[in-house]
């Protein structure tokens, strides 16, 4: 027994010291990595761990955090009706805008790729511009303004289709669809550029070979040649689209106000901001952040599973 355990100990010790030698031999690599890695750990990795820790406490920033076990999570799912509304809205919102924005990015990139370089560059700019134009999306609040100065209301009134203005961004029936339109409008961002680049990188001879092998139209070409060839880009685009659709609350709140009428456009992120920035219930807010984190990662895993089937 005693001999065995020292052997194991020795083994572990030598393995550790071997590892240490390897680390020392790669000193320069770590020096290069260090500046980025230190800030990445402090501002991205550590916060996730802190949020997980805080989610099991009661913490109001004034007193020390108090351990409460699973209480925050129980309250979230069993006692907080508004949270359940937020989950439902976030789910609907992400399930619609996520895939839609993804396919819009793909379809527009695919169509643009058929054009001459100069027109292609212009259209790329046109579709990409909304995602980088800062808070210009607030123009939509003027377009859907709830009085006759709003473009949509103005014309509907002028043409006699309605006799009084529609409260587009405060009426629960209109809120979600309109917010989705605005978010889709600005969703042709990084994924869109990645798809365009991916399409341009596909070897032209594959298409020629495909045509010889009996591919008859664009759609067969898309399914049998283009999509399988750009699987890495599709994978990356999926990540960006999912993250974007979950995080869209940043744009929703300025559009419909906070809280939105009947919580009709209340999302998990809005709920998180409510408890984190307004009520200072940091433990509870952290449990919301953890739920959000887990659902984002879960959504990513599901979509990546689906996409990895593209190869077959």
């Amino acid at each position: 027994m005693g001999v065995m355990s020292t052997a194991v100990k020795m083994d572990l010790k030598t393995r550790l010291s071997l590892k240490w030698e390897e680390v020392k031999a790669n000193k320069v690599s770590y020096l290069f990595l260090a500046p980025y890695a230190i800030f990445f750990l402090i501002f991205t990795v550590l916060p996730v761990l802190i949020a997980i820790g805080l989610s099991f406490t009661h913490y109001n920033m004034l007193e020390r955090p108090k351990w409460v076990g699973w209480q925050n999570y129980l309250r979230l799912f069993l006692a907080d009706d508004v949270f359940l509304i937020a989950v439902k809205n976030t789910f609907i919102f992400a399930a619609i805008t996520g895939p839609l924005s993804y396919f819009l990015c793909l379809i527009f990139a695919w169509m643009i790729n058929e054009l001459q370089p100069r027109i292609r560059a212009f259209l790329t700019l046109l579709f990409y511009a909304p995602s980088i134009s800062g808070n210009l999306y607030l123009m939509w609040t003027i377009i859907f303004s709830p009085d006759s100065y709003g473009y949509v209301n103005g014309f509907l009134l002028y043409w006699g289709i309605i006799d009084q203005p529609i409260q587009f961004l405060t009426d629960p029936r209109w809120m979600m669809p309109l917010v989705m339109v605005v978010v889709l409008w600005m969703s042709l961002g990084t994924s869109f550029l990645v798809f365009i680049a991916g399409l341009q990188g596909i070897d032209e001879t594959w298409y020629e070979a495909g045509a010889v092998d009996g591919i008859q139209n664009r759609f067969q070409e898309l399914i049998y040649i283009t999509l399988p060839a750009m699987r890495p880009q599709l994978m990356f685009g999926a990540i960006m689209s999912i993250t974007g659709s979950f995080a869209a609350a940043g744009q929703i709140i300025p559009l419909v106000g906070f809280p939105s009428t009947d919580y009709a456009a209340h999302t998990v992120v809005a709920h998180l901001l409510d408890y984190g920035n307004i009520r200072f219930e940091m433990g509870y807010a952290s449990s919301i952040a953890v739920v959000l984190f887990i659902s984002m990662i879960a959504a990513q895993q599901i979509v990546q599973r689906l996409l990895s089937k593209l190869d077959d």
């Binding site: 990445f40 501002f43 550590l46 990540i239 979950f246 984190g276 807010a285």
Partner: peptide, 21 residues
């Protein structure tokens, strides 16, 4: 892989701890 993982979640997840940091 940590970096790729961090592409998958929005900054709101880390907002509160970042304020504390």
């Amino acid at each position: 892989s940590l970096v790729v993982l961090s592409l998958m979640f929005a900054y709101q997840v880390t907002a509160i701890p970042n304020y504390l940091t």
